[in-house]
Structures are given as structure tokens and as C-alpha cells.
Computed example of a mutant assay.
Amino acid sequence: MKTLTKAQLIYRTKLCILFIIAGLAISGITAFPIESELAYFNNHLNSFPALLQPWLHTVYNGLRQTNLNYPFLSYGTDWLAFAHLMLAILFIGPLLNPVKNSWVIQFGLIACLLIIPLAFIAGPIRHIPFFWQLIDCSFGVVAAVPLGIAYFNIRRLEQRQFN
């Protein structure tokens, strides 16, 4: 394995962290207009695999009816969106100083791991189809890759006493 310089390790670590920040920010921003997004998807169901079409239609109708009758329930989704944005901000610390803020990367890895039991426990209780539970789990698996790389690089930086 090629030995990387301090600058290379920091650059690669920051790229991984930027990926996480972007993913969290996009997730947060796109959660606010969820009914509009689902309406668009519902109007273009043929663009999606056949397995997803009935589920997307059901989710859109459920959300539309809920918002018509109980719009205050979407306040929970607003807080979910806000939480994603706050988590994105949390990762600015390791972006600025990865070694000093490695605990945030550890927190992210733990969160990625905990997505899996949450999906498989809450999913059946909430009548979420199994294939959608797998999609939810994939977010944790995908995010764990750059977080794991970042964490590995931070440990290498610490071992070489570059801080």
C-alpha cells in the first residue's frame, strides 16, 4: 500500500466528510416539500420499477389525505428535515479539523449501524414493505463507507502524529 502524505490523508478525509454533509443536507432540504415531490412521482409512476409504483401511489395518497385533514402531522416531517440539516452542520467540525473531531465520525458510524435495527423493528410495525426497509437500510450502508474511510484516515493521521 502506498504511503500517503498528511495532505493527501486530510484531502481524502475531507472529501468523504463533504459527501456526508451533502447527503444529509439534500435529505433535509428535500423532506420539506415531500407532498409536492410525491405528487410529481405519482404523476410519473411509469418511470419507476413496477414494484415501487403501488407503494409510491399509496404513500402519496396517504400523505395527501393526512395533510388535507391533519396538516399539523407534517410538522413532524419538518422536524425530521431540520434534524438532517443540523446533522449536516455537525459534520463541519470534522471537516475543519478531522483529528480533533473524530468523535463526530464515530457518532456517524454508530448512527449508520443503528439504521438497520430501526428499519427492521419499526418497518413491520408501521406496515412498511420489506423492500422499502432494505432501501432505508441502504442509506446506512452507503454512508458508512465514506465515514469508515474518513475514520481510518483519521486514525492514520493520529498514529503518524500529524496533528
Score class of each variant (00 low, 15 high):
Gly123Cys: 08
Tyr75Val: 06
Tyr75His: 09
Lys6Met: 13
Ala144Pro: 10
Asn101Tyr: 14
Leu114Met: 03
Glu35Met: 14
Leu157Arg: 10
Leu4Asn: 06
Ile115Ala: 03
Pro94Gly: 04
Ser36Gln: 15
Leu114Phe: 02
Ala111Arg: 01
Lys2Asp: 07
Gly93Ser: 13
Phe152His: 04
Ala81Arg: 01
Arg12Asp: 02
Gly108Ile: 06
Leu96Ala: 13
Asn61Ser: 07
Leu56Ile: 12
Gly148Glu: 07
Gln159Glu: 14
Gly76Ala: 03
Val104Ala: 14
Thr77Met: 09
Ile116Asn: 00
Ala150Cys: 08
Ile10Pro: 10
Leu134Ile: 15
Thr58Asn: 11
Ile128Thr: 10
Leu9Gly: 00
Ala111Gln: 08
Asn163Phe: 12
Leu63His: 13
Leu113Gln: 04
Asn46Lys: 14
Glu158Gly: 00
Trp79Thr: 09
Leu56His: 03
Gln106Phe: 13
Met86Thr: 08
Val145Ile: 11
Val145Leu: 09
Cys112Glu: 09
Gly148Pro: 09
Ile105Val: 14
Pro129Val: 06
Ile154Glu: 01
Leu114Trp: 06
Ile149Trp: 06
Asn46His: 15
Leu147Asn: 05
Pro98Lys: 06
Gly148His: 10
Ser36Pro: 12
Pro124Thr: 08
Leu24Phe: 07
Tyr60Phe: 15
Val59Ala: 12
Ala83Arg: 07
His127Lys: 11
His44Thr: 14
Val99Gln: 13
Ala119Leu: 11
Ser102Tyr: 13
Cys112His: 02
Gly23Glu: 01
Arg156His: 03
Ile10Phe: 01
Arg155Phe: 00
Phe152Met: 08
Pro49Trp: 06
Asp136His: 09
Leu134Val: 15
Leu87Cys: 08
Leu96Trp: 14
Ala81Ser: 05
Pro117Val: 04
Phe82Val: 15
Ala83Asp: 03
Leu157Ser: 02
Ala22Pro: 07
Ala88Tyr: 00
Gly93Arg: 13
Phe41Arg: 15
His44Asn: 15
Asn42Ala: 15
Ala143Met: 00
Ile128Val: 13
Ser36Lys: 15
Pro94Asn: 06
Phe139Asn: 03
Ser102Lys: 15
Ala25Gln: 09
Pro33Ala: 00
Glu158Met: 13
Ile128Glu: 08
Tyr151Ile: 01
Arg12Met: 05
Ile21Met: 07
Pro117Trp: 04
Glu37Asn: 15
Ile20Leu: 08
Thr13His: 09
Asn69Trp: 11
Pro49Met: 05
Thr58Ala: 12
Gln133Gly: 11
Lys2Ile: 07
Met1Ile: 04
Asn67Ser: 11
Phe91Glu: 05
Ala39Ser: 15
Ala81Trp: 01
Pro94Ala: 10
Leu118His: 06
Leu24His: 10
Leu73Glu: 09
Ala111Asn: 01
Trp55Pro: 07
Gly93Thr: 12
Val59Leu: 14
Asp136Ala: 11
Ala144Val: 06
Ile34Gln: 09
Leu68Thr: 04
Leu56Pro: 00
Leu52Ile: 09
Trp132Tyr: 11
Phe19Gln: 03
Ile121Val: 10
Leu4Ser: 07
Pro98Arg: 07
Phe107Gln: 06
Leu90Lys: 03
Phe19Gly: 01
Gly108Gln: 07
Ile116Ala: 08
Thr3Asp: 03
Phe130Glu: 12
Lys100Cys: 14
Gly140Arg: 01
Leu157Glu: 04
Leu15Glu: 10
Pro94Ser: 04
Gly93Phe: 14
Asn46Met: 14
Asn153Pro: 04
Pro146Thr: 05
